[in-house]
Design a protein around this nucleic acid. Structure first.
Lengths: 195, 195
DNA sequence: GTCTATATTCTGATAGAC
DNA sequence: GTCTATCAGAATATAGAC
């Protein structure tokens, strides 16, 4: 998008983040230059440094925002029925991840490009999210609603299965997201041994 | 590892591939320079070009070798019992992927760094592999051994679930691979609705 | 087959004008 | 807040000596 030199849109900050999100998701953090991001936004490379101290912070901000939004959007585990709580989690995870494929992709692919301190912060947020599912699985186990041998392993299995949908699902395809959600929920329900 | 300048080990080719495998898996294709690979091997950067025409070919060779080995190692679907065939696939997938974490990581993470033609070749091999699992699921469905609504979706779900083990499993951890295989097989068996 | 040296282009980041 | 110009270094790949 061409811009008049020196003009002030007032929304350059968000545009920088959006351009970085798209380019990092498409080509990878290491393969994208600050000049490419600037070109996408419509400014010169130097102007980016009004919005981020460096490239690493840009990546971290994107990942941190994503994880914060994920935790904020996650419904509380307040349903009386563990089976219903698990179903809510499954459907929530699938729809949330479906809505932001670029951020999800970056969150999984660019962990190794975070510096040590930033990596630790993102990992902690990821663990907190996984703990929510693990808590649901433990609760249902305690109540005899289902039968999982090891809640931690089941947590990993379910999250990997659900997140994998992003690699193949396309809205224009054979099935709607709702249909895919139904089928994944059925597989999860059976996998944990619920009736 | 230091090397005497000009010495001829006779195994530089494999060492180049091994160094690239490790470095690409650890830091990502785009983040690794030919100089880094050369340094790991113990030669100067220019010498690498006796073994690969360019960096892209090095990546492609690693991924193609991995997929070729995967297809070659995959057992034929010749068991009489579909349930046993599926169990063999699950255990094979888990142990094969456990044995070569670097190659698996690269095969999943670096697809976007392949050029168009190389990408098409790798994708075709991946599809052939997925088709093998899909064939198993369709056969068991036809025989009434289990009940999967959509074999393609179940294929994606199972592969994502199994491959995800590589992101967390460590041999030194709480559980052995055999124990994890048992638990994943139980979850897969239940998920497809087999007795 | 490996070396050294180099061509050419690109990189993240900064300085100072406006 | 954005520009132009620039620094210092790193990138892939090649050429030619040995």
């Amino acid at each position: 998008m061409a811009r008049t030199a020196g003009s002030h849109s007032g929304i350059t900050g968000p545009k920088v983040r959006q351009a970085a999100l798209e380019l990092f998701a498409k080509h990878g953090y290491a393969a994208v230059s600050m000049r490419q991001i600037a070109s996408e936004v419509g400014v010169q490379a130097g102007a980016l440094y009004n919005y981020t101290p460096d490239k690493q912070s840009l990546l971290f901000d994107l990942m941190q925002s994503h994880m914060t939004e994920l935790m904020a959007a996650l419904p509380d585990n307040t349903a009386d029925d563990p089976l219903q709580t698990l179903e809510h989690f499954v459907r929530f995870h699938m729809s949330f991840h479906h809505d932001r494929p670029e951020a999800v992709f970056i969150a999984y692919m660019e962990l190794r490009n975070l510096n040590e301190q930033n990596f630790a912060m993102i990992e902690e947020m990821r663990r907190a999210y996984e703990d929510r599912l693990q808590g649901i699985l433990i609760a249902g186990q305690a109540n005899g609603v289902w039968d999982v041998k090891d809640a931690k392993i089941a947590t990993f299995a379910v999250i990997a299965m659900l997140t994998g949908v992003n690699t193949w699902f396309r809205s224009a395809g054979r099935l709607s997201l709702a249909e895919v959600q139904d089928q994944y929920w059925e597989m999860v329900r059976k996998a944990v041994g619920a009736d």
